[in-house]
Design a protein around this nucleic acid. Structure first.
Lengths: 182, 182
DNA sequence: TAGCGCATGTAATATGTTACATGATTTC
DNA sequence: GAAATCATGTAACATATTACATGCGCTA
């Protein structure tokens, strides 16, 4: 997932590995905060795969390697972004994608979040059937993890439902997050 | 984490790798559902480290390797269980521990969950300060991930608060989850 | 001149998944 | 007799962390 997050940052401006680490700390650390040990190899691989280009330069006596996304990179990033969210993969994946939804037309973002809510609802139905069976059989702690899972999904459903409403209210005021690092 | 979940299952009865996979599917799949490719090597390692013992046998013509936890294993499992929950590590770790809290004295479980709530509250305070700064600066999608993180923590706090109350009401009716596989 | 922030990178380790290989028994 | 289920295991791959190694420039 880190490669897509990196591409997402590069969609916006050219960055070094060090920059990326700083920006993550300030913006995505809630759901993703990678170490240099994964950022640098990821950049390396992205370049080998032809999704980014790098320029070596010396600034204030410091050796820097500035990366920029190219057309190939933009294509794979947008493809990832437009894919429906598989919310069972990981809770972080949802956040990662939504974080970059500003790159999508508003209608597409709305559509994807609507689909997410539908998928969550399906899973809720599934778990509710399981709940009946297990509640009678398990102890309070074992049952609690299932009920937590269920309540957690209900929380997510309600949250994204509300988010959709806020989204429709939003004027789309152009407020790019580039401001963060200024 | 898988090693502790395996030890937790073995606390209750002797099992084969195959059994463990089945039980996971029925009980913990909500937060952990490992593949054979991680269960078998994990069992192997647990045995090499001296936490479990295995007995090879042939039952109904099928070769089986039944694992049982030993004193060393019980010690490391209980030590893991009694440790305060680091809820920032992963959301799954909370569930994994609470799932086995039936092995703890009720007061210890209560204490650990109380501490968890305190830790979550601390993090909420932290994020609320960040929120003020970022809200003005980020676009709706970027801000949403932070707000989701915050609301998510508030959900967890409320949930475990309520769970504590339910726990105090609970008679502690002995309802071991062994019933699941019957 | 010591230490911190900037800046890049590697090596060892951990942890897990998917796919494959193998072979027995049970069920239709 | 074919397919599903029981049962164990390995190999290739993916993904990430921690700790280390290196070195420059700025500031106290």
């Amino acid at each position: 997932m880190i490669k897509f997050v990196i591409l997402g940052f590069l969609m916006h401006k050219d960055l070094t590995g060090y920059d990326i680490k700083q920006i993550m700390l300030q913006s995505t650390s809630n759901f993703m905060n990678s170490s240099f040990g994964s950022i640098y190899p990821a950049l390396d691989k992205l370049e080998k795969n032809g999704y980014v280009n790098s320029t070596k330069l010396i600034e204030k006596g410091k050796y820097k390697k500035v990366y920029s996304i190219n057309d190939g990179g933009r294509v794979v990033f947008m493809k990832w972004l437009e894919e429906p969210i598989d919310f069972m993969k990981s809770y972080e994946e949802i956040l990662a994608k939504v974080f970059f939804y500003g790159h999508l037309p508003r209608e597409k973002a709305t559509e994807l979040i609507t689909q997410l809510i539908i998928d969550i609802n399906k899973k809720i139905k599934e778990l509710e059937e399981l709940e009946v069976k297990l509640k009678s059989v398990a102890g309070i702690f074992e049952a609690s993890t299932l009920i937590f899972g269920l309540d957690h999904l209900k929380f997510m459903q309600a949250w994204y439902e509300k988010f959709l409403i806020d989204l429709n209210k939003d004027t789309g005021g152009d407020n790019p997050y580039e401001c963060i690092d200024s």
